[in-house]
């Protein structure tokens, strides 16, 4: 499938995410929908890659640290022709490489994640490698807001800032909902911008569903000598009325009827 618009791409990412999660009776559809616009802009407008050569030396590296939302990443990669859309049917099935946490056994997935707090340190290692080899490629890592509870992220941010890793972009999917309740009621992370700035990062805040804002903030024009942090304000379950801002869609999978309604609301019938 050839899609040249990030807006259209994001609709298909959402539709396939819903379908995969529904078919597999899997979880984390809400978080998948909250990152679909970010993935669409990244893969349509920002990242340098060749789907036929997933290990292209000078490709940009992207790590999905919130690996539980991998359905959206797999859908993105399929829509960008790393593999076929039919391959997505094996999501979370016995013997499949498409496990329901991001797997490096899938073409185009840089790094397996699933336990939170692992993506950023690995991204920092890759950024160090690029810097030490004076490579032009850049590293992007997408974290969840709840994931910021993990101390390893702050260890990595300290390090990245100390070493002026301007080739590193950290995106926070700030959908304000964690596993049981809101971020605010779980472990407060505000003032988040101030925190990252205090750690020495160059921080911007954007509407994580506005493609123009996302593209502008993600563009590789970080003229600061520090890692870039983009706090993307998002809505968990974005695009599906009965899922938006509902904590239960961290777990539930849509049944047939719910899937049909959801696809109608997204505006893509598969």
């Amino acid at each position: 499938m050839k899609i040249n618009s990030s807006v259209l791409l994001s609709k298909y990412i959402k539709a396939y995410t819903l379908k995969m999660v529904s078919n597999a009776k899997a979880s984390h559809v809400g978080g998948g929908l909250s990152i679909s616009d970010i993935l669409a802009v990244l893969y349509n407008n920002i990242l340098h890659f060749d789907a036929q050569k997933p290990l292209l030396e000078n490709r940009d590296r992207f790590i999905l640290s919130k690996g539980h939302c991998c359905a959206a990443l797999y859908a993105t990669l399929a829509l960008k022709n790393f593999f076929t859309l039919r391959d997505l049917n094996s999501f979370a099935q016995f013997g499949s490489n498409f496990m329901s946490h991001a797997s490096h056994k899938v073409k185009g997935v840089e790094f397996s994640t699933g336990s939170l707090g692992h993506g950023l340190p690995c991204a920092v290692g890759k950024a160090m490698a690029a810097k030490s080899g004076k490579k032009k490629w850049e590293v992007f890592v997408l974290l969840s807001d709840g994931e910021l509870n993990e101390g390893s992220n702050w260890e990595a941010t300290l390090f990245a800032s100390h070493h002026n890793l301007s080739n590193l972009t950290i995106i926070v999917d700030y959908n304000k909902l964690q596993s049981l309740t809101t971020v605010e009621k779980t472990i407060k992370i505000e003032p988040l911008k101030d925190k990252f700035e205090a750690f020495g990062c160059y921080v911007s805040e954007v509407n994580g569903h506005d493609h123009k804002e996302l593209e502008k903030s993600l563009s590789k024009t970080n003229k600061k000598n520090s890692p870039k942090v983009i706090i993307a304000h998002t809505v968990k379950g974005k695009g599906v009325s009965f899922m938006e801002n509902r904590v239960e869609w961290h777990y539930k999978s849509p049944d047939k009827d719910q899937l049909e309604i959801a696809l109608n609301e997204i505006g893509v019938m598969l």
Binding site: F111, V124, G125, M128, A129, E155, F159
Partner: peptide, 26 residues
């Protein structure tokens, strides 16, 4: 000096970074 990193007192990050560097052939 270019092949030496003091990761500080942060072993989780050190080990995760090591994975990242190793993924780039170090």
């Amino acid at each position: 000096p270019k092949q030496f990193i003091n990761a500080g007192v942060a072993e989780q990050n050190m080990t995760g970074m090591a994975a990242g560097l190793a993924s780039e052939k170090f």
